[in-house]
Design a protein around this nucleic acid. Structure first.
Length: 920
RNA sequence: GCGGAUGUGGCGUAAUUGGUAGCCGCGCUAGACUUAGGAUCUAGUGCCGAGAGGCGUAGGAGUUCGAGUCUCCUCAUCCGCACCA
């Protein structure tokens, strides 16, 4: 009997649990380190081999850091609110809490089998009332704060009220939905309800009518990042635009800080770039255009104020409030029908027909403030309501979209930047010289823009500004399975509940569907109102509510009085290493940063950024196997011969295929229709084809970690997942290679055992060579761990085990440190060996072995000798030999003389301890 | 279209600072052992060539004594964004 991983793994998992080995407390004099995995949504399908990839990497790092003397916080929990459990509840009538609980139990079992070092004492799920109490609490704080644009931080709404009561909107520096203007007297004269409505214009969590992504199939509104290519991210259902009253978070107020903060975090360049694009900062100007013959103005945002003399028409988005006011009687019918058509188009339609030009003339004109020219105002879909002001000044000569529009409707195109050929296409460069532009003629573009902005300011019709693409986040969902808003309505105006009344519990409902009148499911709950009888909000919060600040709660998970205590927050600070998928780049990772910055502003947390270092693990794709059935038969032809027949490829369960060879007997019993199938073989085997696809049940390519653990053990699975390649890289799962790692684990075990599998480690003094191997390994593992290069570390373990096996080394002074080194990777194996070595404590708490450089000092160096850069031979010289001496020696070498072939070297390059290159 | 990343044996990959390209593992070949197996061990395995040797890191050019690594161009693949004014 060799290494019995089943017994060993079970035994130590129990031991770790019984002895609370992974429990962590704050320890004042010990440096902290916080390692966090993006917490999982517990889906019904359980874990497949792709999920633990990141968890294994972070677990290795957490264990390593602990052995290096850090107090490591490494928690786990569940993002438990969400659509799948609710969809399932709608179908079956079963409460989503029950499904969620079952799924979590399954997840936990699977996670436990892999041997993670999570501190489960800190576990929570977002659907626990003790947890969502704090999600609701943060919402109340957001509601009670506004963003001061002058001091660039959140401030209490009471201060804003004070300001309005004494100065009105004068000198007000607040992020707002729309600019308002009134005096203190006007404010004070307003009713309570009127004032509350106005305050919504400034609150960081506010209620507003806005054009939202409405998904009828899911019966809810979605945030921008939840809509992908015009369909819902979950389920892939169509999304429409709809004007609805919704809770919204004023994320846009933090756009600039979210952008700047990226410079302070250690994230991959690609993910920072995705966030930068999503935030989409652009510099330009707001300019107000007077409408001809009307007491109205049209505001535009432009990044190219330098092209103001090239404006030949204006465009408003179909949602623009001004349309009704300025459209002329003659144009009204046409405009109405266009606007109706455009507003009711789905996101998908819009996006697939981007190249199609459409629009309609309003009949109204604006006046160019710089030359008094009358310019026609159009309505067109290509101008978006959510960006800038919803209106643009069109400069067809220097913007390709305006150009296409002008060509289509035969509008004038006027060149104002020299250098292009506007008869062919728009000339969009930002380097160039202004022409046909009055007082900015001959100026470079940048100078021209500056001058125009100065003029705009002096005319009092605008200002230079920065605009962001980042939009406020819709925060309401018309669903059941989420956090209830701690909000009630009085006179139609929202108020938040007092903090003492939290948590506001999710009520029971008879059905998880909207009411007959189209209200969200919570409206079905009996008595869904406050003690005083005011109706409560019936929407719930979105999935990202609970995941935005969860990292904080792990610091102080059971605190009933605070989200996190000041003391514990100051100890744990923020996440040192965050591991998770790159798909959260524009969702969770933005919201979470926003949420944290707000909590920083109100002095709840001590760090401005939540996640210092981020690693995005790659996706593990499935490797699907195919068999080939000859058309109209039950005959299957092997991969290499299939081209001689007309065949249908059929996906086959990867679990009955080994190294692409089909287990024919298993195949016959896989499905009844294959029972009497026959086969055309090559070399007596049926060879399957393969393809890389997403891992999914329907493709029969799912590899379940439990099966692999049963066959090879958790340590093998852990090391194999790391061995596949760099953590960040996406790669197809291929079980074939796992045998190699399995052999390695057994070989490692055999170092400590004799042929009869008796533990046999001796106390002899190791040789210099054995010490060299050990310290080379210590150095390598330490370096690789530090740079998250776990694949190369596994390979380094294999090399040293091969070398120690060759030396038949079974010496304690080598093998004991080796067991510590490998414990982060193969904790069960390491713990067993550690105890066999006579230790009574856990290897988890052992110190990482100290590297001693002396053991690696070489007395001689083997030099590759190359001629014109091509390596020809090798020569050994003492390590301390001078360059001059080496040169003399090498030229006497008979082999070198042979390669010189009678010529004399032009130059000899000798890099000490590296290389000798002879140039002929 | 814009932005980012990647490209190395049959396969997954390695080469940390410009210094012997292919470590480690899979697969494959041959052999040993064996109550035949999806176990273990030994040797070999980038390509061409009998060999000497030649070629070789997507392709092309360049810098350098020396390039997988640096620069420029081209191609391919993946990811993100996409009427963002």
């Amino acid at each position: 009997m060799e290494y019995n991983f089943t017994d060993v793994e079970k035994r130590w998992q129990q031991y770790w649990k019984d002895h609370h080995i992974y429990h962590v407390d704050e320890i004042e004099n010990r440096p902290k380190f916080y390692v966090l995995d993006m917490f999982p949504y517990p889906s019904g399908a359980g874990l497949h081999v792709g999920h633990p990839l990141g968890y294994i990497a972070s677990d290795i790092y957490a264990r390593y850091k602990r052995q290096k003397g850090f107090n490591v916080l490494h928690p786990m929990g569940y993002d438990a609110f969400g659509l799948p459990a609710e969809q399932y509840a709608i179908q079956t009538g079963q409460h989503p809490a029950i499904t969620t609980k079952q799924n979590i139990t399954r997840y936990r079992e699977q996670l436990d089998k892999i041997g993670f070092s999570f501190d489960w004492d800190r576990e929570f799920k977002t659907s626990d009332p003790d947890y969502y109490k704090w999600t609701q609490w943060v919402f109340i704080q957001l509601f009670n704060h506004y963003y001061c644009t002058k001091c660039q931080k959140a401030k209490p709404i009471a201060e804003l009220q004070q300001h309005l009561a004494t100065q009105g909107t004068n000198e007000l520096h607040a992020a707002q939905s729309k600019p308002l203007s009134f005096t203190a007297d006007e404010w004070n004269a307003k009713t309570e309800t009127e004032q509350q409505n106005i305050l919504l214009n400034y609150r960081l969590a506010y209620l507003a009518d806005s054009w939202v992504n409405w998904c009828p199939k899911l019966g809810t509104v979605l945030a921008n990042d939840e809509v992908v290519n015009g369909v819902s991210e979950r389920g892939g259902f169509p999304v429409e635009r709809k004007l609805m009253k919704q809770w919204i978070l004023r994320v846009s107020a933090y756009a600039d800080r979210l952008l700047k903060g990226l410079e302070t975090v250690e994230w991959s360049e690609s993910i920072k770039e995705i966030q930068r694009n999503w935030i989409g900062r652009s510099e330009g100007a707001f300019i107000r255009f007077q409408i001809d013959d009307k007491p109205a103005t049209l505001d535009v945002f432009t990044t190219r104020p330098d092209t103001i003399f090239g404006v030949s028409f204006m465009v408003m988005c179909p949602e623009h409030a001004l349309i009704e006011q300025i459209t002329t009687a003659e144009q009204k019918a046409e405009v109405d029908s266009y606007v109706f058509w455009a507003r009711n188009r789905t996101e998908t339609e819009r996006q697939t027909e981007v190249k199609k030009v459409s629009g309609v003339f309003t009949g109204a004109y604006a006046i160019n403030p710089f030359n008094g020219e009358k310019i026609p105002i159009w309505v067109a879909e290509y101008v978006l309501s959510g960006y800038g002001t919803g209106g643009i000044m069109a400069v067809p000569a220097h913007d390709s979209r305006d150009y296409a529009f002008a060509k289509h409707f035969n509008l004038p195109i006027r060149e104002v930047i020299a250098g292009g050929d506007i008869t062919k296409e728009a000339f969009e460069t930002k380097e160039g010289t202004c022409i046909n532009s009055d007082f900015i003629n001959d100026l470079p573009v940048k100078e021209g823009a500056k001058k125009v902005i100065e003029k705009v300011i002096s005319l009092g019709i605008g200002y230079g500004t920065v605009n962001y693409r980042l939009r406020d986040a819709i925060f309401s969902r018309q669903r059941y399975w989420g956090e209830p808003f701690p909000v009630y309505y009085k006179n139609g105006v929202p108020y938040v509940l007092p903090e003492e009344e939290l948590p506001l519990l999710l009520p029971e409902v008879d059905k998880y569907l909207p009411t007959e009148t189209g209200e969200p499911p919570l409206a079905r709950a009996e008595n869904w109102k406050t003690k005083e009888g005011y109706p409560l909000e019936s929407s719930t919060m979105p999935g990202f509510a609970g995941s935005s600040g969860y990292y904080l709660r792990y610091m102080d998970p059971h605190n009933p009085n605070e989200l996190v205590s000041k003391k514990k927050n100051e100890y744990w600070q923020n996440v040192d290493l965050y591991v998770g998928g790159a798909e959260h780049a524009t969702g969770h990772l933005i919201y979470s940063r926003f949420w944290n910055k707000f909590l920083f502003d109100i002095n709840i947390v001590c760090k401005d950024e939540p996640y210092k270092k981020l690693i995005n693990q790659g996706m593990i794709q499935g490797r699907t196997n195919f068999v080939y059935r000859i058309i109209n038969t039950n005959r299957f032809v092997s991969f290499g011969l299939k081209d001689d027949y007309e065949v249908t490829p059929i996906r086959v369960d990867v679990n009955i295929v080994h190294n692409d060879i089909l287990d024919i007997e298993a195949f016959k019993h896989w499905r009844p229709e294959f029972l009497d199938a026959d086969f055309i073989l090559e070399d007596g085997k049926y060879v399957c084809g393969w393809e890389v696809e997403k891992m999914s049940k329907s493709k029969y390519n799912v590899q379940n970690p439990d099966d692999l653990i049963e066959r090879y053990g958790a340590d093998t699975l852990r090391m194999y997942e790391m061995f596949l390649g760099p953590v960040e890289l996406s790669k197809p799962w291929d079980t074939n290679g796992i045998e190699g790692v399995f052999r390695f684990i057994k070989k490692f075990w055999r170092l400590y055992h004799d042929k009869e599998n008796n533990f046999a480690v001796c106390d002899d003094e190791p040789t210099a060579e054995e010490y060299r191997i050990l310290h080379k390994t210590i150095k390598k593992i330490e370096e690789d761990n530090e740079r998250f290069s776990f694949n190369t570390a596994v390979s380094a373990f294999m090399i040293s085990v091969n070398e120690l096996t060759d030396l038949k080394c079974n010496k304690r002074k080598i093998l004991e440190p080796m067991s510590i080194l490998i414990s982060a990777y193969a904790p069960h194996l390491a713990e067993e060996l550690w105890h066999l070595l006579g230790n009574t404590d856990s290897v988890v708490t052992a110190d990482f072995p100290a590297f001693v450089a002396d053991y690696l000092v070489e007395t001689s160096t083997k030099y590759p000798v190359s001629f014109n850069g091509k390596t020809r031979l090798q020569r050994v010289f003492p390590a301390d030999m001078s360059v001059k001496d080496i040169e003399n020696e090498i030229l006497k070498d008979s082999e070198v003389i042979k390669w010189l072939d009678g010529k004399s070297p032009r130059k000899i390059i000798i890099v000490p301890k590296k290389i000798i290159n002879i140039v002929i």
